[in-house]
């Protein structure tokens, strides 16, 4: 992969299991293997896309990387420092560096607080800016995300979905972080608004040299925005590649199926679609061997037994598949 100098955040063998309790005694009966062994180096200044169907562990991976979930296993190395196992207090300086943008910004905004107050709060916690200085800073921030000074005294419910996402973005960039996990930030928006927000995210990245982990199920948006893409299936990595390689030469049969399933806004071109049989298996009881073997069109007997190794097939292009 790239020189270690370029690595901002190294995610090593990360697992996050949630206990499933049951029975009269509420004993732990089983685990949801939400994230089941992810290793990836996130490079300075890149946008790393994470794609896969709902429930494959994208959001859990994002939260775990930000230290919002306790690791079940693995290591997180941020800018050379291993922060796995750090206490809340020890994490504080790192939390300033890392922020998150959510799919539904409304859920993370206090309905009784004006947007100005909400943004000022970030500066109260993390800086010693006061009074007018702080207000000025918030107004500059509002303008930076395409809002205006008038929005300072308004409440969240007075904003449209797109504007709320701008507020979420303003809050995330307020104290100059280096790394932002964007968890489906445009998925709930209408396409015309979605395009505006994508543009804003791109502009801010350039201006502030941000590194993004961009979680999305929309493969069109991911192609447009990301430099590299990680494909997940049932908590595991199935393919990682530079964006154009992934879209032009998908190698894992799951990636292939995923890409061929996207309806294209083009008429009259017949495309071969790879039909996947059946539904996603449960992450509580994932298939043995390759997690994809139950739906894979090219699976052989050994796929059900052995977990395929993660291997590099061309420079920077990795897959986990026995048959490819």
């Amino acid at each position: 992969m790239a020189d270690s100098a370029q690595v901002l955040y190294s995610v090593k063998g990360v697992k996050k299991y949630y206990p499933v309790k049951g029975g009269i005694l509420r004993r732990v009966k089983n685990h949801v293997k939400a994230v089941d062994g992810i290793s990836v180096d996130i490079l300075k200044g890149e946008t790393l896309g994470v794609v896969g169907e709902s429930g494959c562990g994208k959001s859990t991976l994002g939260r775990t990387i930000l230290g919002l979930e306790q690791l079940t296993e693995g290591n997180l190395v941020y800018n050379g420092t291993n922060i796995s196992g750090y206490s809340k207090k020890e994490l504080k300086p790192f939390k300033k560096e890392m922020q998150m943008i959510f799919q539904d910004p409304y859920a993370s905004l206090n309905p009784k607080q004006t947007v100005g107050e909400a943004l000022e709060e970030v500066f109260i916690i993390h800086t010693d800016l006061r009074g007018n200085e702080r207000r000025e800073k918030v107004i500059r921030l509002l303008k930076e995300v395409g809002l205006t000074e008038e929005h300072f005294d308004r409440y969240p419910h007075e904003f449209s979905g797109g504007q709320r996402q701008r507020i979420g973005i303003a809050r995330a960039i307020a104290i100059n972080p280096s790394f932002i996990v964007c968890d489906e930030p445009v998925s709930a928006l209408d396409v015309s608004i979605q395009a505006q927000v994508i543009k804003l995210l791109k502009d801010l990245q350039e201006k502030h040299e941000l590194t993004y982990l961009f979680v999305s199920h929309d493969l069109g948006v991911v192609r447009h925005l990301c430099n590299r893409v990680l494909v997940m299936y049932l908590g595991q990595m199935v393919e990682l590649a530079p964006v154009d390689r992934l879209y032009e030469n998908p190698v894992h049969p799951y990636t292939e199926a995923l890409l061929s399933s996207i309806p294209r806004p083009v008429v009259g071109v017949k495309r071969e679609r790879i039909r996947l049989q059946g539904d996603l298996p449960s992450p509580t009881n994932p298939p043995t061997g390759c997690p994809f073997h139950t739906r894979c069109p090219i699976a052989k007997d050994h796929c059900a037994v052995e977990r395929p190794k993660w291997r590099e097939i061309e420079k920077g292009h990795y897959i986990a598949c026995h048959e490819r």
């Binding site: 504007q163 015309s192 608004i193 395009a195 879209y247």
Partner: peptide
């Protein structure tokens, strides 16, 4: 505008051209 607001999966150089304003 709608057609040029949806990033095309097959086009590496797709130019996103959002419609200004809101609904």
């Amino acid at each position: 505008g709608l057609l040029s607001s949806v990033p095309n999966v097959d086009d590496p150089d797709f130019h996103l051209n959002p419609i200004a304003g809101s609904l």
